[in-house]
């Protein structure tokens, strides 16, 4: 039944003229999004590395605090940059391969592009799931902690 349906669909739906036009625009805007993301992650990393953390006083303690702050800023910019680059790399690959597939009517290239689109959504989805789980756990611990404090 499943196979029959798949074979059936092979001849029934296709990337018609309208769908191809939409795909071309998708490719254009998705590429702009990916390139803008690459640029912004790079700038954020440069600003984090070369930017100065201004401290109002020149004491030993404030120097220590600003140096810790700088380390945290660089680490967070690096981590978000790596994750962002990985996600947008798949979006960029989707645009490049789908564009090639559409230009030379190459089904294999288009399918490769769609694999990248699927991976792009999958990675963002999994990251969202991880964030939701972490937020849920933090909320749970906060509630348990406040209940524990309330009883004693």
């Amino acid at each position: 039944m499943e196979n029959e349906n798949q074979l059936d669909s092979f001849f029934k739906i296709s990337f018609d003229a309208d769908a191809r036009e939409h795909l071309k625009t998708i490719v254009l805007w998705a590429r702009i999004c990916a390139i803008c993301a690459f640029i912004s992650y790079t700038i954020a990393l440069i600003v984090a590395i070369f930017g100065k953390t201004v401290s109002p006083t020149y004491s030993e303690q404030s120097y220590q605090v600003s140096s810790n702050l700088k380390t945290w800023t660089i680490a967070s910019a690096l981590i978000s940059g790596i994750i962002g680059f990985a996600i947008n790399y798949f979006l960029y690959r989707f645009t490049a391969e789908a564009k090639q597939g559409l230009d030379v009517v190459d089904q294999v290239k288009l399918n490769d592009g769609l694999i990248n689109l699927k991976t792009y959504f999958k990675i963002i989805g999994v990251l969202f799931l991880i964030v939701l789980i972490i937020v849920g756990l933090v909320l749970l611990f906060v509630i348990i902690g406040s209940l524990g404090r309330g009883t004693y």
Binding site: F10, F11, S14, R20, G101, Q107, L114
Partner: peptide
């Protein structure tokens, strides 16, 4: 034309 084959589906 470009089709929605089993893979792209």
């Amino acid at each position: 034309d470009l089709q929605i084959d089993a893979q792209s589906n």
